[in-house]
Design a binder for these strands. Structure first.
Lengths: 256, 256
DNA sequence: CGGTCTCTTGAGCAGAGTCAATGAACGTGG
DNA sequence: CCACGTTCATTGACTCTGCTCAAGAGACCG
């Protein structure tokens, strides 16, 4: 993806791609989405898109970069509750509710498109195919959140981390099909801990044991997956929860 | 609620009530829901509504009883991922996907209404207000799942259990407004553990310490809340995530 | 060159798990 | 009505995964 297309009609392509992976999107509906009025917004240096408690008047599509959704306990512990990639709608819940329950924050730099809530909702209302796909998006979001609960609730630290890497790999690959076996994680070890319900110290130790195991090759925040099948098995990972199984399947790499 | 109304036109009232709590439901749309063709199904003795891997052809509305959604890890550990009360649509995800990712199971005895998926989807498509409300239902489901992730990931066993009790109390009360301060939990301590990512032994110990504390009064599976405000505070519980904040608020009890 | 952030490592601790045994409650068939 | 099996709750003793606290080492940046 080159920078120049981000200002053209094709800027919302990542969203269209995502919707098409989840179901059938008629051409006229796709065109209607592409013609939505939107504001480009560049975010730098881990800026917040939405802060807990703020009111929200726009629906945000992530065009480039990665974002997280998180919430805190009263004791100040932070838990990352979701991960967003280009093409993802990152604040549907907040947009509907009007007030944000959670904070949404990008990593490093990111680019988003913001569409007024009312315009977006009118589109979903007037075009049943779009309404249906957005509903499916939300159903998949919920399925992902449940898988995270399972991950945090019942898997040990090692499996939990591997499972997270698998989800990251699959979603990263869907959003941006470069080399699917090389992951550049934007997370610090503390942030990984916040996503996994672990401390940064323990994340560090688990990462080291993974390197010692040769389960993954790691160099700083870059991780190379050497054996995807074995990784999936060790991670107890089944990507079914990331998909709408009724949607047409797109096969990316034959070894996956 | 008496048994005899379960066979009449008013049987789907719990669903209508739930939708009205989340937004505006025009009368003609409500009538269309009430006129949906549905099959009554009685479930006995912890029967499964949907089993992991099965295909699903009906949308299920829980009319009476309580249901859980759970998934298992490859090591056989079980995690309860969701809780359903009368009025809840309990298998939207499964219905869309066609194949069930999870198992949905009732406690003891329950009664459900089953609507063919195609009929249900047509209703959502043809009536934007209903489509919108169902979307909101799903958004709230996702928000609940995220709160569970936070609960399991970052709260200690005591707070986690209290938080679960709070959610149970509020949702139970919404679905069936009897005495909001008395909860009859249908769960064994093992099932509570499965919902909280704990072992039954530890749940037992935490429950005992709560009784010793006088945080709650407990007699078998019946729990009496003596001080809701204090409980909420200790549980780090804020019910905002259970609601669509744009919807009209219904106040139940003044002390809540 | 000092400051900040992140990663790394060690030592000790504790919350929660495991294993195992006992009791209480309940249903069922004889 | 009793004997038996089953399911749940309870308790103790012991273990261990993952946390806390603390300090040092790189890396980067102004």
């Amino acid at each position: 993806m080159r920078s120049d297309i981000l200002d053209t009609d094709r800027a919302l392509q990542p969203l269209l791609g995502k919707l098409r992976r989840l179901g059938t999107l008629p051409d006229d509906d796709a065109a209607a989405i592409a013609q939505l009025p939107w504001n480009r917004k560049e975010l730098r240096n881990a800026a917040c898109i939405v802060r807990q408690g703020e009111s929200v008047r726009c629906c945000t599509v992530l065009l480039r970069g990665i974002a997280t959704l998180d919430r805190m306990t009263c004791t100040g512990a932070r838990q990352i509750l979701g991960l967003y990639f280009p093409g993802d709608l990152i604040d549907l819940q907040q947009a509907f509710a009007g007030d944000a329950l959670d904070t949404i924050q990008v990593f490093d730099d990111a680019i988003v498109a913001q569409v007024p809530v009312a315009v977006f909702m009118a589109l979903a209302r007037d075009r049943p195919a779009i309404g249906r796909l957005l509903w499916i998006v939300t159903l998949v979001d919920a399925a992902i959140a449940r898988e995270w609960t399972l991950n945090v609730g019942r898997r040990d630290a090692r499996t939990r981390l591997l499972h997270f890497l698998c989800e990251f790999a699959v979603r990263q690959d869907e959003a941006d099909s470069s080399d699917p076996d090389v992951l550049t994680l934007p997370f610090t070890q503390e942030q990984l801990g916040d996503a996994l319900g672990l401390t940064s110290v323990h994340v560090n130790r688990v990462l080291q044991s993974l390197r010692d195991d040769h389960t993954v090759e790691r160099d700083g925040r870059t991780i190379r997956i050497t054996n995807w099948q074995r990784l999936k098995q060790q991670a107890d990972f089944n990507e079914a929860y990331l998909r709408n199984t009724n949607a047409p399947r797109t096969i990316t790499a034959s070894n996956r």
